[in-house]
Each structure stands twice: as structure tokens, then as C-alpha cells.
Nucleic acid binder design. Structure first.
Length: 812
RNA sequence: GUCCGGGUGGCGGAAUUGGUAUACGCGCUUGACUUAAAAUCAAGUGCCGAAAGGCAUGCGGGUUCGACUCCCGCCCCGGGCACCA
């Protein structure tokens, strides 16, 4: 018998056998209940698979393997999200076509993924760059266009100077490009937009029923940013214009002492002739446009703005004449792009009012705040709680004053009544439409033709896919026009409508396009007639469990929910939400506690780990390293623990005999623990439980074959290769991965004796074993313990507390 | 600023209807085996203390017979959002 655990031999052998036997391929004909488990398909970067991929993929592999053995027909697919900037940037530098580098990276990824023993159904593999795939991405776009959810608009977009690319709101972090960290400014550009805002309410409200981890729900909710308030119209004096403002605090209307328009507000140009300082205003607007987001919100930046001389508005509440300003602290894209300023009750308005000497009028009585002494010193020095009233700005609610008939009312009531009298209810969202154009090469061409006569003409469905043309110069030009413009033969076409000369749209889709629906394609990945057949969609959707990164919460996850709801609306799918359950994994940081990156030199290559320790050890380690949802620090030394565990398991086989004495209580407990922990993704404690089991089994010379086999079955989802090998050596029939998932018997877990802990005044002083639960008897035993007696000499037990089968606490 | 997480040995971490704090693993110490080392096996390992005992879950209070766990306040770390009216 072999005594050494040769991971390389074992892993290669079993991977080949499983592949040959198609062990992991989904059986479409099966009548078992379906289970669709999904991981985010990787972007095939030239750097190869990251240990972070292994973490997330192993977790879902464990869940899929368990489900399979619980009697479900599993769909656990994989593919590649292969359009993207890194390959294109590399192409700009080297002239090598992104397709070549991407395909190479995909081959490498495939090899790496296979070496991990992940139970993917490889027969359904997809890649977003495949024309047969992006045909359907383009098809969805056409449908969006047809339903007025795709439109072209000239809007100020976030422009990354380094990448020469327009960015979606979601792709800008702290005012810099999420990708390259370069500065982002605003440019007016004609862009394709998707009207995700039309779905804001639905995206928000259906969140409630979904089984997503809380942080995901919270983030999406905040991102959608629903805000309920009122819209109030302010008429202008002497002019037939009105300005609408959005406010959540109508109750402060009597305190509105001026209005502020965002510099981009359209009414300013309409008012032009009536503004006596128009030049000054224009100057300010120009300056505001060239201000970047970083500058605009820079900390401690003083408020700026210009008064529109000659213009004044009427406060509808009290008829007062109030001035109108334009200032960049008011955002054009939120609410109506105009606000009523209430300096007494809003910090920002107050700052502005102070600078421009505008009146501050209190209309809500401030509530006193209770100040409590904090530290021991304060308390010792006799400091007492006291009430303080903030004097300057009070942003809270309270009783109204100086508000005519509404005085004496509390804020909520006043809001109701004042909305009714002066305006109307209004709901706004922070969510903005999705900037869908990219002036780049390596993406799906947007399938429309621009005709001077007919305007935007969709490419007929029969002509899909619009293939990405071959070009050799991938650099976008200075103005940010797409490199596709250089493919003259491709660009110049006849208009499908009028047959006149026309041009193809040269913008391509963002890399979020292909990933917004990929989970549907897995169901029917070779279908050329539809993105997915109705029948298969009905059978497999929605995804039962989807694990992925938190960084995709407001991007991919939200986008794909939007597309799916849209597909539902046009009858292409039969349910409204794509993912029933969403969980998330934490990052793996380098050994230096920093994010893994080439420049830091702290990247761990999974290939090396597989080579030296084996895929099973790597999998086990990554699951053992810490709580699945939290960031963890890589430790190569830490791999030794799981590796030793597998070594011990392998050697233990020599001691396995068919014997009667089993460790039933222990094993049933393990089955319970491991089963439950997998469901809650507490893989670290599941592994700990299996380590404890093995350690316990090894305490005896002989190990029961039944116990050992059971342990193998529990471990199989985590370490599929070694358990399969040992299962065969044990004489097991068929693959261990096809055996039913073990069940446990509660009765067998119960212990015969209980350990009773004895405390005196809450401190542990002793313990004893007890076979019964008789309160009086146990209390008596406790009071007579040698360790306890000395405490009873001075005084009597005032009270004795008994917690059944657990603890006695003697209170003196 | 605000919304989520999180703070426990030398290190990763375990423990939740409040009931033995430090499971499991790494590391370390000692011993066995070995010419030696590695590997492996065995014993030990929160801190202070010779011991008895005392002290320990970010800090300060509180509730309780009993608090890592609940309440009040604060500090620090990670992440999201941020002039959103």
C-alpha cells in the first residue's frame, strides 16, 4: 500500500476520469429538482487566475457538490467576460490584436480552473467576445432601443484623460478613474444612454423579497437613493416664469429666503435679457463647467455663486420677494436642479447665506440636545448632564414658528399640510441613467446606423451580429473618437431605410454589457435562434445562488437586474428577478496586508501552490483561512495546517478496519455541523469540525470503516480528489461525489453525561460530571465541591442559580 | 459628515435566545526517532505569579446571579456614499 499522499498523481488522475465520465455535466433530461449555482465569470487577464477567484469558486463548488448529493440536478457553469480595457491597452502599446491576447489568456484560465477540480459543466462554456454570443447582446440593445430605453443625448460625461474614455458614474471613484486612477473631467459628448432610472422604483421595491446579504441590499438601496418630498413652484416677479424646486423639508418653506439654480439650469438662458449682470453670470457658469468633481466637493471649499440681478421670486408661503442665485453647490442632475434655500435649517444654505449676507429666518424651534458627561474624570469632577441648544443651524425637526397658520404644528404634520397647499408630492432618485457608449475598440459594436436623412436606424435583426472589424491601430484619437472610425469600409454603409449613404455607429458597448445577461446564455449556449429557449429559461431561471464581489453591487449586479426586468417586460424571460440569493466573499490580501498587485510583488500564483501542495490543500486552506465574507491575509505557512490534515487522513487509511466500536456521537455531530456550516458559508468552522473528528478517530489504534467513510463523504466537496482516491481504496462503489449527502440523527448526538460548571458569584470555581438533571441533587453536589466549600465558610449562599444540564451559580 | 462591516493570545481566528472565553490551525518550547537535519510522533503553550490566586475580548459607564454577547457614550480600522436639497 502507498503510504505517501502524492497529490499530483491523484489530482491529475481523477480530473481525467471525471472529465471522461462527464461527471459534472448537467443532465437536461433529468427530472430531479433543478439548482442553478453561479459564480461571476472571470475577466481573463494576462496575469492568470487570482487566489481570490479560487476562494469564491471553491465556495460555490462546495455548495454545488453538496446540492448534487442532496438530489438536485445542478447547473454550475463557467465562461469568460472577455471584452475589456486591459487587453485593448496592451494592444495600443504592442499592436497585438486584443483577440489574440484574450484567447491566450482564456486558454490559460481554462487550464488553471480545471486544475482546481471545480465541478463546472465545461460543455457550456461561453465567452462574451464570441460573435455568436454578442449577437444577442446586440439584440438586447435593439430591443432596448425599440422600447425607448436607449437614447442618444449630449450630456456632460466623466472623461478619463489617460484612458481617453467616457466613464459611467459608477466607474468614477473619488473623482478619479476607477481603472487607472487618472483625473476625470467633464466633457459634453453625444452618448448612448440606457434609461435605468425608469426602473428605479422596481429595482428598489423588489429588493425586499430577495435573499441578498444585507450590505448588498443597503448599498443598492442607497445607490438608487429614493427621496420623498415635495415640488414647489416659485413665481418670478414681473415675469411669466416659474422655478420649480424639490425639497424634503416643505415645513421650512417660510424660512426660504432665496433660491439657487444650478449653473446648468436651462431657465438661466431664457431669463437672459432680464438679467442685468448677464456677463458675470455667464462667466460663473463657464467656470463651473470646467471645475472637476474633485475640486467641486473639495473639503472646506467656500461656497461660490452669483446673484441674478434684476430677477426675484415670490415665496408662495408668505408672498415675500426673495433673490435668485446660481451656485455650483446645487446639482443640475438631482431634483429639479434648483433649490429653495433655508439658511436657518440647512448647513449648506447657511454657509452660502453668511458669505452673501442673506437673511436667516428661523421657522422651526430647535430641540435641545442632552449632553452627557463622557469620561470618568468628568463624572468624578461632578459634571452633570445638561441641555444645550445649537444656536446657528438647526437641521432637525420640531415645532414650527413664524409660519403663519402652520405655526405650532410639528414638522411632519406641517409637511403634509403645506405640500397640499403650496405644491405637490414628488419622489426623486439619485440613480442616473447608464452611460452606455465607449469610444473604444474592444467591445460589442452598437448595432445602429446613423443616416443624415433618417437619423438613428437600427441594424435589422437579420443582420446581427454586427462584427467588430479588424483594425491595426487601436488608439482613440485626441477628441476621444472611437478607433473604429478608421475602419472606413466598415463604417460607410447604406442606410437600411432609405439606401442612402450612411455611417455605422462607431461607439462600442461598455464591458458591463456582456455580463448583464450571461447567466441566461449558459442555459442554452449553442442556440443560434434565440438568446435562450423559452423552455430552458423556464426550467432553470432564476439563479438559485449567486456569489460574487461586493465591488459589483452597484454595477454588474444592478445592471443585470435592470436588463432582466426589461427582458421580462418584453416577454423574453418569465420571471422578474435573475438571482434569488446573493452572497459575497471577502478579498484576499497579500502577506504584507496590502492588496495583491504585481507592482508590490505580493501576488500569489495559484499554479505554484497547486504544484507544491495540491489543489485540495489550496481549496481547503482558502476555505479555512477565515470568515468567508471578510477580508483575509494570505499566509503560505498557513497552508501547512490543511496539508497536514490531508496527510494524516491519508495515513489513517492503514488503521481503518471493519469494527463494531464506532464514534457515533462524534460523527453525527460532525455531519450536523458541516451540513449547517456549508449552508451559512462558515467553511472555516466546518473544516475545524472535520479536523476535530479526524483527531478523535486517530486516538484509537483502529478506526471504524464506517466512521472513516463518513468523514470522507463530508470532506469530499472541499477536497474532491483525495477523498475520491481514498473512497476507492476503501472499496467504495462509484464516485464519492455521487453518494448521497450524509444525514444525522439528533438522538445520537446527545451525550449521556453533562458537565456541570460551578460558579461562585459568577466566577468559575469547579466542575463535575452528572448523569441526571435533578436540580436539588446537582445543587447539593455543587455546594459540596472542595473548591467551593471555602467560599461558604464566611457566609451563606444567598441564592443558588441552576441552568439545566449546564451550570450552577452560587451567589453569596 | 453619513451608512454598512469589524476590533478577542505572538499570528489567522472560535464562541450569540447572556452561562467553562481563547475551539481549530499557524508559530513557539520540550521530549522521542535520527550521526545530523527535515518530516513525523508525544507533551506543553492567554498574561502576571513559585504557588494560592489575580488580571484579560478597543475605551468609559450601565443592566444582570452571570456580559465577547444586551443598553448608553466614545475611540480606532476596513469598505460604500457624499454640497443628493
Amino acid at each position: 500500500m502507498e503510504h505517501n499522499y502524492d497529490h499530483k498523481k491523484i489530482e491529475e488522475r481523477w480530473q481525467a476520469i471525471w472529465e471522461e465520465k462527464k461527471l459534472n455535466e448537467t443532465d437536461e433530461k433529468s427530472n430531479k429538482p433543478k439548482y442553478y449555482s453561479l459564480v461571476e465569470f472571470p475577466y481573463p487577464s494576462g496575469d492568470g487566475l487570482h487566489v481570490g477567484h479560487v476562494r469564491s469558486y471553491t465556495a460555490m463548488d462546495i455548495i454545488s457538490r453538496k446540492r448534487r448529493r442532496e438530489g438536485f440536478e445542478i447547473l454550475f457553469p463557467i465562461g469568460y467576460d472577455a471584452f475589456g480595457l486591459p487587453a485593448e491597452n496592451f494592444a495600443v502599446k504592442t499592436g497585438i490584436h486584443p483577440k489574440i491576447t484574450t484567447e491566450k489568456a482564456i486558454s490559460n484560465f481554462r487550464k488553471q480552473l480545471k486544475s482546481m477540480g471545480l465541478s463546472f459543466d465545461w460543455s457550456r462554456e461561453i465567452k462574451t467576445i464570441d460573435p455568436k454570443y454578442y449577437k444577442w447582446t446586440q439584440w438586447i440593445f435593439l430591443k432596448l432601443l425599440e422600447n425607448n430605453l436607449a437614447y442618444k443625448a449630449k450630456i456632460p460625461i466623466n472623461w478619463c484623460q489617460d484612458c481617453r474614455i467616457g466613464l459611467a458614474n459608477e466607474e468614477v471613484t473619488d473623482g478619479v478613474c476607477e481603472r487607472c486612477g487618472g483625473p476625470v473631467d467633464k466633457r459634453e459628448k453625444e452618448q448612448w444612454m440606457l434609461a435605468i432610472t425608469k426602473y428605479a422604483e422596481r429595482l428598489l421595491s423588489s429588493l425586499e423579497e430577495l435573499d441578498y446579504i444585507l450590505p448588498v441590499k443597503v448599498q443598492q438601496k442607497n445607490w438608487i437613493g429614493k427621496s420623498e418630498g415635495a415640488e414647489i413652484s416659485f413665481n418670478l416677479k414681473f415675469l411669466d416664469f416659474k422655478i420649480n424646486v424639490f425639497t424634503t423639508r416643505v415645513d421650512t418653506l417660510f424660512g426660504a429666503t432665496y433660491l439657487v439654480l444650478s449653473p446648468e439650469h436651462k431657465i438661466i438662458s431664457n431669463l437672459g435679457p432680464n438679467i442685468s449682470n448677464l456677463n458675470e453670470v455667464k462667466e460663473y457658469i463657464k467656470k463651473a463647467a470646467s471645475t472637476t468633481d474633485i475640486e467641486r466637493v473639495a473639503e472646506g471649499r467656500e461656497k461660490t455663486g452669483v446673484k441674478l440681478e434684476g430677477i426675484s421670486a415670490i415665496n408662495p408661503a408668505n408672498g415675500e420677494e426673495i433673490p435668485v442665485y446660481t451656485a455650483d453647490y446645487v446639482l443640475s442632475h438631482y431634483g429639479s436642479g434648483a433649490i429653495m434655500a433655508v439658511p436657518a435649517h440647512d448647513e449648506r444654505d447657511y454657509q452660502f447665506a453668511k458669505k452673501f449676507n442673506l437673511p436667516v429666518k428661523k421657522v422651526v424651534e430647535a430641540k435641545a440636545i442632552l449632553e452627557i458627561p463622557r469620561n470618568a474624570e468628568d463624572i468624578a469632577s461632578g459634571a452633570k448632564k445638561r441641555l444645550i441648544i445649537k444656536t446657528e443651524v438647526y437641521a432637525g425637526e420640531g415645532k414650527l414658528i413664524n409660519s403663519g397658520e402652520f405655526s405650532e404644528m410639528e414638522s411632519p404634520e406641517a409637511r403634509e399640510k403645506m405640500t397640499e397647499k403650496f405644491g405637490r408630492r414628488k419622489v426623486t432618485y439619485k440613480l442616473r441613467d447608464w452611460v452606455f457608449s465607449r469610444q473604444r475598440y474592444w467591445g460589442e459594436p452598437i448595432p445602429v446606423i446613423l443616416c443624415k436623412k433618417c437619423g438613428v436606424v437600427p441594424v435589422p435583426e437579420s443582420e446581427l451580429p454586427v462584427l467588430l472589424p479588424e483594425i491595426s491601430d487601436f488608439m482613440p484619437d485626441e477628441d476621444g473618437e472611437s478607433p473604429l472610425l478608421k475602419a472606413k469600409d466598415w463604417v460607410n454603409v447604406k442606410c437600411p431605410k432609405c439606401s442612402g449613404a450612411a455611417q455605422r455607429e462607431t461607439d462600442v458597448m461598455p464591458n458591463w454589457a456582456g455580463s448583464s445577461w450571461y447567466f441566461l446564455r449558459y442555459l442554452d449556449s449553442r442556440n443560434d435562434d434565440a438568446l435562450v429557449s423559452k423552455e430552458k429559461e423556464k426550467k432553470w431561471m432564476p439563479v438559485d445562488w449567486y456569489n460574487g464581489g461586493m465591488e459589483h453591487t452597484t454595477l454588474h449586479l444592478l445592471y443585470s437586474r435592470f436588463w432582466y426586468k426589461f427582458l421580462f417586460d418584453i416577454g423574453a424571460v418569465s420571471s422578474e428577478e435573475p438571482y434569488k440569493k446573493r452572497t459575497s466573499h471577502g478579498f484576499i490580501l497579500g502577506e504584507d496586508n496590502e492588496k495583491m498587485s504585481k507592482s508590490r510583488g505580493n501576488v500569489i500564483n495559484p499554479d505554484e501552490i497547486v504544484k507544491y501542495f495540491g489543489a485540495d490543500t489550496l481549496r481547503l486552506y482558502e476555505m479555512f483561512i477565515g470568515p468567508f465574507d471578510q477580508a483575509v491575509v494570505w499566509s503560505t505557512d498557513g497552508l501547512l495546517g490543511p496539508r497536514r490534515f490531508l496527510d494524516k487522513l491519508y495515513k489513517a487509511l492503514d488503521r481503518v478496519k471493519v469494527i463494531k466500536s464506532r464514534k457515533e456521537s462524534l460523527m453525527h455531530q460532525s455531519v450536523k455541523k458541516v451540513s449547517e456550516d456549508i449552508e451559512s458559508m462558515k467553511f472555516n468552522t466546518a473544516i475545524s469540525a472535520m479536523m476535530i473528528s479526524l483527531n478523535e478517530l486517530l486516538k484509537d489504534e483502529e478506526i471504524s470503516k464506517e466512521d472513516y467513510g463518513l468523514l470522507l463523504k463530508l470532506l469530499a466537496p472541499f477536497a474532491p480528489h483525495i477523498t475520491e482516491e481514498l473512497w476507492q481504496k476503501l472499496g467504495g462503489k462509484g464516485s464519492i461525489h455521487l453518494t448521497p449527502w450524509p444525514t444525522y440523527d439528533k438522538k445520537k448526538i446527545v451525550k449521556k453525561t453533562n458537565l456541570i460548571v460551578v460558579q461562585v458569584n459568577g466566577k468559575v470555581r469547579g466542575q463535575f460530571q452528572s448523569e441526571n438533571s435533578d436540580e436539588e441533587e446537582i445543587k447539593k453536589t455543587a455546594l459540596n465541591l472542595d473548591k467551593v466549600k471555602p467560599y461558604l465558610e464566611d457566609g451563606k449562599a444567598r441564592r443558588v442559580i441552576y441552568v439545566k444540564d449546564k451550570l450552577v451559580n452560587i451567589v453569596l
